[in-house]
Design a protein around this nucleic acid. Structure first.
Lengths: 168, 168
DNA sequence: TATTGTTATACTCTATAACTATA
DNA sequence: TATAGTTATAGAGTATAACAATA
């Protein structure tokens, strides 16, 4: 297995290369800069990071925010319905709800029709927190994205992501 | 897993609601359908799923593919440099390399300059597998995305994701 | 003293099987 | 029997501290 050995015999120069970690200049990304999956993953991590920063005062993760939003918009639905819609597996949804319920943001109520089901509802505090979260997301998080991309591009991006999420 | 297709299922009274889980019609997504982070996460999962399917014959994950690509494109680099460029923490990179090395795709070589460093190189088999992977990605994975979005939209999407990943 | 690769560890996410109580 | 919520559990992915060898 002959290994093509190209130089790389440069020694370390300046310490601390702008935080990128190594010793030399930036590496070649090659086909990686055209790989949609790779770029989407990196971009998604950045977006979630910013979301967490913006909503930090309310201590809500993106997943928790999506649960509150969906429960609020869909009264009378049970755990399975909410979880499935968000792509969360039912077993994993239990501890999520335990958390939200322990913080008095959400409540499980036994359905009168089907006593196996738990109907989900937001508490008053849950609705208040959701309202504040929505405002933070709109004015800080989405606003920053809007500033970076511009409204037209942002709309186009949303449309493409929606298409991929739904049809790919 | 994610939610199954939302296809235009009209008559939704048959048991088993097309995998959507619940009993009634689809839930209201509300502001979620405008939340970029949520859509990006859902889209990213779909894209990675498809990547895994397309490259399944080679048993490569997106992360492993990115490592092979970067090592091939950047001869003479050490573990820290490759890991940092990909956003992988050095401790977590160790088992990844153990895996690739055990499959004879990649090799660690002690640097002669700095005997602390491991220079990374692909084996002949590693280069062959990478070449086959690139072909599968281009002809199956990216081709399918191209078909869904169209070349112009795909290019625009790449540009926006790159911008978010770099500047957001 | 600082850095590279490594170990150990922990915490989150995700995924599957199986239990309970209802239906 | 089938379903809703739950438990237990296992596996990835990700994060930090600390150690040995080397600089």
């Amino acid at each position: 297995m002959s290994v093509s050995k190209t130089a790389a015999t440069e020694a370390s120069k300046t310490r601390k290369e702008a935080g990128e970690g190594g010793s030399e200049h930036a590496l070649q990304m090659g086909e990686l800069s055209e790989l949609l999956g790779y770029l989407m993953k990196r971009a998604q991590l950045k977006v979630f990071e910013d979301f967490l920063r913006c909503v930090a005062p309310l201590q809500l993760t993106p997943a928790q925010f999506s649960v509150l939003l969906l429960v609020d918009r869909n009264p009378g639905r049970n755990q399975t319905e909410i979880a499935n819609t968000l792509g969360i597996l039912r077993p994993n949804f239990v501890s999520m709800l335990d958390n939200l319920e322990s913080r008095d943001l959400c409540m499980r109520m036994r359905s009168t029709n089907d006593r196996r089901s738990h109907i989900l509802v937001l508490t008053d505090k849950g609705r208040a927190v959701l309202a504040r979260a929505k405002k933070l997301v709109a004015t800080k998080h989405e606003a920053r994205l809007n500033e970076l991309l511009g409204p037209a591009n942002r709309t186009a991006l949303l449309a493409m992501l929606t298409k991929i999420a739904a049809e790919f």
